[in-house]
Design a protein around this nucleic acid. Structure first.
Lengths: 183, 183
DNA sequence: ACGACATGCATCAGCAATGATGCAAGTAGA
DNA sequence: TCTACTTGCATCATTGCTGATGCATGTCGT
């Protein structure tokens, strides 16, 4: 079923996906034409690689989801909660800085949904460990905690004019998440 | 230049704007057809009231911006920082829960830009007063504080399945903003 | 080097959304 | 009530996007 792809095919597909992310982040309604132009290929080539516009968006989401999963799964869950939190944040930021559009796009794709569910599980588990370790307040709803965390990451990843490195950004997120900005 | 509108014209325009918010929040690429249907008017009527699609989106943004400005300006800036913060949050939430799409949409409209700039000014001023009153840490960058604040409001307004009332939501936002979710 | 495959280009068909208009019926406001 | 305005309906033109295909040229992998 899965015949090995030729190297140039692979390169073309990557170029298209990267361009799609870039262009669509700027304008979610951008046409295939513009994506093709940004990829450096002809529009017909895009259609040959991705049968329909939906198929392209789907592939984009799947591609981003896989990197997302990899970033999350690369974090050792045996580390101390604070270390784990920082690592996870930094890893996710690294992916989200480059694939923000693809990662935020709602999709019906099963694999993407599975990844998000899996990440959510790990996130909740991580917060659970943090709470057990006394790092998190016990009276905060888990769902709200998670939303605040996602929100901070989103807010940080949205501005790529930030020149700070990923670890600095992650540190700021974790600090704000835990202590807020009040005295 | 500004002839007084007939009452039914006014009603129709309102209905269209409300429907547009509702429909576009669900699908930002929805057609005029769908918006018209949701408004309970014919598609041609929408075109009579708003010459082009852009004009409609623009009017929608302006309408939301005015309510936004009103919500912010209704907060007395002589109140104690914590009270002011809570009031502002609740007022903005009230508007944003119903006009989230229109308020988040990027636009080149001058009036909308002016409103956002004005709100930003008031926000920064409010944070300044809060800091002077010892409510905010002095070592936090103002811009980051503002982004976290906006992010929390956004995160809260995104889920209207929350049955909690606006004041409860605002209280949670302020608490999280100031103290985070850590111990 | 050779066969298989990918690409660019030109070109086509189809479609859905936009925007406009004339006309008859309804409604607001004085 | 009378006038001016608004609306719904039917209809049309235009436009921009999508998706497909045939052919010549170029590139990959063995």
């Amino acid at each position: 079923m899965e015949r090995t792809k030729r190297a140039d095919t692979e390169r073309t597909e990557q170029a298209i996906l990267r361009a799609a992310e870039r262009v669509l982040a700027d304008d979610p309604a951008a046409s295939m034409e513009r994506i093709a132009a940004a990829s450096g290929v002809a529009r017909t080539t895009v259609h040959r690689r991705f049968a329909t516009r939906d198929a392209l968006l789907d592939a984009l989401s799947v591609w981003a989801a896989r990197q997302f999963a990899a970033a999350v799964d690369a974090v050792p869950d045996a580390a101390p909660p604070l270390v784990e939190l920082h690592q996870a944040t930094a890893n996710v930021l690294r992916v989200k800085l480059g694939w923000g559009f693809a990662m935020s796009r709602p999709t019906a794709n099963a694999e993407v949904a599975a990844v998000h569910a899996h990440v959510l599980d790990r996130c909740v588990a991580m917060f659970g460990r943090a709470r057990d370790a006394g790092v998190l307040r016990a009276d905060v709803e888990v769902d709200w905690a998670r939303r605040v965390y996602y929100g901070l990451i989103h807010e940080t990843a949205d501005r790529r004019d930030d020149t700070a490195d990923v670890d600095t950004l992650a540190a700021r997120i974790v600090d704000t998440l835990l202590h807020g900005i009040g005295t």
